[in-house]
Design a binder for these strands. Structure first.
Length: 271
DNA sequence: CTTTGCACCTGTTGGC
DNA sequence: TGCCAACAGGTGCAAA
């Protein structure tokens, strides 16, 4: 489920339930995620109060006084707030149990997600050290995109999905933002004009922001419901619409592969 | 340094 | 109807 808007919505959903609460226990049912869940987490966290939570790229950070719990939802992960009496599903791999009888439960059928522990500055963790700017922060703008794309022959869609350039732009929103900017995904990044970079940066920001606004409303009860609910309620300009009529000009939407991922575009509206 | 392709894993979908 | 290949929201990593 998780593109950046879903991760952001998840953060907003779980934060009020966790902040300030003391950890009673940590339950690891299956440690084999993308990387093994540290076995000493129960020992590390029992009795510790949760401080603040934040998002960096698609990682969720749960800060404690002595370190940070790093969560990633991968392709199929979700987090819910439940009570301790709720029986786990076979893909419920990890619980953070709080003293007030509430648990934060990670479900992840494909197990591409991660639960890690880091002491000290998260920005110095190897996974975070080389990340580009947040797409919704002022630092990410047309000028940054313009500079980052100079001399790059790779397709603009791949560059926009490159975490070193800007984080958090997943396959759906890369496709959608490129349509909105009128740029075809195969275009060599280095050929984009400054004006088109400005436009693309603006559309990336707008697309993500609008989706967060939608996710926020459609997933209001996310923490105790499926979470996928709101996801497909959005109507996309191009994503998943192969051979369907472009919503602007009626031309059939095309589908191609780029970097082993599907790209969708209108051959008339995007140049 | 950039670019490309693989790997990890399970559940669902679509074509024959 | 049933089977099986292809595909799915991510991303670190190795190799070229």
């Amino acid at each position: 489920m998780p593109e950046l808007p879903e991760v952001e919505t998840t953060l907003r959903g779980i934060a009020p339930h966790l902040s300030g609460q003391v950890v009673a226990d940590v339950i690891i049912r299956n440690a084999q995620l993308r990387w093994p869940i540290p076995r000493n987490l129960p020992k590390l966290l029992r009795g510790q109060p949760v401080r603040n939570l934040e998002r960096r790229a698609k990682y969720l950070l749960v800060h404690f006084d002595h370190g940070t719990l790093i969560l990633h939802l991968g392709m199929s992960g979700s987090l819910r707030i439940l009570t301790t009496s709720t029986p786990p599903d076979k893909h419920d791999h990890f619980d953070l149990v709080l003293v007030n009888g509430i648990i934060m439960r990670l479900r992840d059928p494909r197990r591409f997600g991660a639960v890690l522990w880091h002491e000290g500055e998260v920005s110095r963790h190897p996974l975070f050290a080389k990340l580009g700017p947040e797409p919704l922060q002022a630092e990410f703008d047309g000028d940054l995109l313009y500079r980052a794309t100079r001399k790059r022959s790779a397709a603009i869609k791949l560059v926009v999905m490159d975490n070193h350039v800007v984080v958090g732009v997943g396959n759906i929103y890369a496709n959608e933002a490129l349509f909105r900017a009128g740029i075809k995904p195969q275009l060599a990044a280095g050929k984009l004009s400054r004006a088109r970079c400005e436009r693309l940066a603006a559309e990336i920001r707008a697309t993500l922001n609008e989706s967060i606004a939608l996710g926020g409303s459609s997933l209001r009860d996310y923490v105790d419901s499926d979470g996928k609910q709101g996801y497909f309620q959005q109507h996309y300009w191009v994503y998943g619409r192969t051979n369907e009529a472009c919503r602007k000009c009626g031309t059939a939407i095309k589908q191609i592969k780029q970097g082993q991922r599907s790209s969708f575009f209108c051959p008339v509206c995007q140049r």
